[in-house]
Design a binder for these strands. Sequence first.
DNA 1: AAATAGATCATACGCCGCGTATGTCAATTG
DNA 2: CAATTGACATACGCGGCGTATGATCTATTT
Lengths: 217, 217
Amino acid sequence: MHRPRKEMIAETRAKLIAAARQAFGTLGYAEASMDDFTASAGLTRGALYHHFGDKKGLLQAVIAEIDAEMSARLKVVSAKPDNLWQGFVDECTAYIEMALEPEIQRIVLRDGPAVLGDPSQWPSQSTCIRSMTESLQRLSDEGTILAVDPEAAARLVSGASLHAAQWIANSNDPEATSKKAVKAFKVLLEGLLNLTGRLHQPDRLSSMHPEIDQSPA
Amino acid sequence: MHRPRKEMIAETRAKLIAAARQAFGTLGYAEASMDDFTASAGLTRGALYHHFGDKKGLLQAVIAEIDAEMSARLKVVSAKPDNLWQGFVDECTAYIEMALEPEIQRIVLRDGPAVLGDPSQWPSQSTCIRSMTESLQRLSDEGTILAVDPEAAARLVSGASLHAAQWIANSNDPEATSKKAVKAFKVLLEGLLNLTGRLHQPDRLSSMHPEIDQSPA
DNA sequence: AAATAGATCATACGCCGCGTATGTCAATTG
DNA sequence: CAATTGACATACGCGGCGTATGATCTATTT
């Protein structure tokens, strides 16, 4: 039987990825010593070079894993409501909230781009963008939003979301900052809505961030 | 006379910053050898450590220089038109165009955050944000835009701009991508406008990107 | 004016981390 | 059962960084 063999290999890969993810997330890519975190997985750099080629390869694998998780979470969130627009809004909210997590900030948003180049080029990041793009495409077909290029809108919205998240996460008063960011984000998103003949529909966005106070300034 | 003395020191600092800026911009921070680029400036690492403490310190100085240039360019652009909104739009345009420059992408947008942490924390990046924030504050006072927190809006808009710029710069077809991005950006920005009683004013944004076709899809 | 102090920069040393080349053992294959 | 391949560990060398030390020059002090 050649099963335990394959399983051992998969386990080795998984252990390396897990150890690297931990090290990259806490120390950062540059400060994480390959000798150290491979040892913490009960292995050596030999295994690392065999499976991933080099340190960058491991980072790619770690990011791919994280991005797959993010994408899965987004898909669940956006598919939940029957209202498409609400699904999109929830997706944006979830996106911001994920970008608040230190591990994602550090590995995906900071070290990733520096080491692997612009995220819009990786297959992984495209997954999240594609998810958001599809949501916008459906909204466009439905007539809910104006006729803009869905991918372009997705990238702008995700860019705004990510910056908002980093701003919030590194703020002295994350609560207050979050309130301000969400309100402004709400206004920007309303720019996408097709309002012909129905000027203001604030309720559409009322559940952007349920846990946060939405009362006007 | 103790003038040449001061001048020599300033010149040394300037030479180090220039050499580092060149190396960081082309090779990237991690690949840039301190021995190499100090030598290219006719100096050694001794001078570097004396003036800037370490490699990070030099990066900070380089970024401060670049950011000062960016801020100056933005101030000029935004002050030119008599129309405040037009000034803001021009400022956004200039922001995107600067973010297309490889040196700024590499040093300020990718390596900077990875090495120095989130940009919203550095004094430098705040300069650009503050400039945009002030523009939005005036527009808010004027009643041209809705009452949102100016800093929040500035950060969202700059985030969207930066992502758009990176997307464009790394695209296979930058021309086409730019068209799509600008149109979507236009729609989002219109979300900020206070449209009470005057629903559509597309001409307000007509000069977002004069060199690029603005015709509808 | 001689001496002292402090600043500017170069030189020299050691450490650590990465990449590669090599070795070893187990598992698969015929 | 011999041969081969794959999975990992070990060993070596190189380069980069940081620091400690040294040399030179300038500005003050008396």
